[in-house]
Design a protein around this nucleic acid. Structure first.
Lengths: 207, 207, 207, 207
DNA sequence: AATGAATGAGGATTCATTCAT
DNA sequence: GATGAATGAATCCTCATTCAT
């Protein structure tokens, strides 16, 4: 029962993609050579004709991950709020299209299965997002378009928090009910309000 | 070289705690019977005198996790913003005191190693936090103390996002530099500014 | 079907001994964890409760080899020809008692399966024999009891050659016919004749 | 990146030679289809266009080995001591020219990787040498040119021992120091002295 | 004649778990 | 209550070999 022969580069891509998906759905311990091979339709030993080791497979998976995440970064030149908005929309769209990626980005599964070098790369991808957000926020603030009564870092956490929530809401079946009519554009508008509107905080704390 | 004999309930607690720590520091694949036993100072076979299976150990670990997280919930009666503030402070304090717990709460390692029932309990713990936040926010909004120009869910994500950031900043060595003078109280004040009702729309977006 | 439980040190010895024998009889590729385990009467995985790796098993086997070979070295003090004679007798006796050891000493199987450190130890054992022979011969020569018309090294090779032959003859079934009445004592006497000082040159070459 | 197409017989020779060298340098476990193919500059699958199996490759390697060793046998007619001398010189020369062959002849690697039939052939090659030596010695003894106070077999072992030593010394880098001015001709002269000079053994043992 | 993708049968090793002592 | 020796199933990986292209 031979598997269909496939050109090596394509097989490699398949294998890396399969690893990514399995990791997202079945977790660290589910990511076995056997499982990957099965999903691809070959025998486990055959994987090692294409990759030197499981770690190498994970590295390739991280390549794919890096690329997909990288594509969601908008042009950093231009209007910073627009840049943030675009990042937001694209990330939500990505979460909808490839929910596994989201899980991977939010969990540390990739870091767990990767070797030191791969783990560093995953971390870099995540940090790049945070840095991007921080930079755009700082820029926007200099333009007076983002509130300055709150430290940037807090705003960064706000953005990443809402992004995380929106991405989760956009695909998580269990959350679908609550966020049934979840609309990413509306979410962004709300987030923008948070970032830009200056509140006076006058009527809050009682203490 | 026999390990000190310990009353069973105490050993159980030890084992569960050890599992929790190992899971946090070494990850899913680091959580082996051997590793747990070693940390407790016992031989691996002995674990199974106290627990029927590794899954049972994880279940007990989840008990501990549940309890520790549960303790951070403030009295839900009373001032909702105060309740949120307290949850915030306590969580940050917990993150500082027991950084592993934070990692566990933010990663899905526990869910990964738990059986179905355990996973559900972990999920419940996390959801309970979100629900708590949502409820307090809703209450506060009814009191007119939280802005209503933004859907509650967005505010929920804001709170959880900032909480996550603050908790991370409060312990992560790598982040310590940036958040060197990180002050949870200040973080909460900033968060509160974000949440509370604005009085005018003067500081509006430009486009 | 559980194997008989044995105290660990004894099992270790068994395993090392089994490895030595398998290597001698079945060769490098025959030395599998499975083969060792089978011979000892346990399952292969169990080997690794006693040794960290196959290499560690081989190391222990080399320990045994070293010890057995070491025991054949006579007291180097005293009459050098007597020392050589004793080494000779003991080696032949060892070859008869434990033919596998001989094979191992003469082949390089042990070196092949050992790690770098183990290989060095095996080499040292072999070299120690040669050195011992050389030293005793040199001593004897100084006493005028060994011929000096021939370089010592040639005499060393003579001794090792005859030893090798005698040891082989003493056990190899195929050679038994020829050396049917093979007598180690007689072999040594003959060897001694070869080594000792000639008195005259009467029986010289003809050409 | 196709390898140069070569006529089949030439490729076969290449492959057999490569196998021989790898076996000598890397040992039994180093002799993999991949290693052979690599050395030849071909992909591993291609080996099996030329040989039915790895065993067949080894058989061909043994052919080559047989031939090379066979070439060192001098004309058995004529002066027996001269014949021995020539064998000696040629073997030492071969050891110098092709050290791998020596290793193979002295180790039993070839026997290990060969099938039953091949192993028998290797054994025959070795035995042929011994037989040759024995025959020439017997002849020479009948002519009164070799000492008769020592059994022939002992002399055979002497010759093979010195040959082995000389061959080893002639190439082994580590031994080069000791045998720095190692001179095969001198070695043979010394050996001849051993074989021909009659000692009386009068002044040896003290016991 | 050679490649390139695949396999199946192992090989070493890990690990949760059992149970006699 | 704890140990210490064992297992069986699974894991990653290697290797000789096959065969369509």
């Amino acid at each position: 029962m031979l598997a269909k022969r496939l050109p090596a580069p394509e097989r490699r891509r398949q294998i890396a993609a399969a690893a990514l998906e399995i990791l997202a759905t079945d977790g660290v311990r589910g990511l076995t050579a056997r499982a990957i091979a099965e999903r691809v339709g070959v025998k486990d030993g055959s994987l090692f004709r294409h990759f030197a080791s499981k770690e190498a497979i994970v590295d390739a998976a991280i390549d794919a991950f890096e690329e997909l995440m990288g594509e969601t970064f908008p042009d950093p030149a231009g209007d910073p709020l627009r840049a943030l908005s675009e990042l937001f929309q694209r990330r939500v769209a990505l979460a909808r299209a490839r929910p596994e990626l989201l899980r991977l980005a939010l969990s540390d599964r990739l870091t767990e299965v990767a070797g030191a070098e791969g783990a560093a790369r995953v971390k870099a991808v995540v940090e790049r997002s945070v840095t991007f957000v921080r930079e755009q926020l700082t820029l926007a603030r200099r333009q007076g378009r983002v509130r300055d009564d709150v430290p940037v870092e807090i705003l960064v956490w706000t953005v990443t928090g809402v992004l995380r929530g929106a991405a989760g809401a956009s695909h998580a079946p269990s959350l679908r009910k609550r966020a049934a009519r979840f609309d990413p554009a509306a979410a962004w508008r709300a987030l923008e309000l948070l970032l830009t509107t200056r509140t006076d905080g006058s009527n809050d704390k009682t203490h």
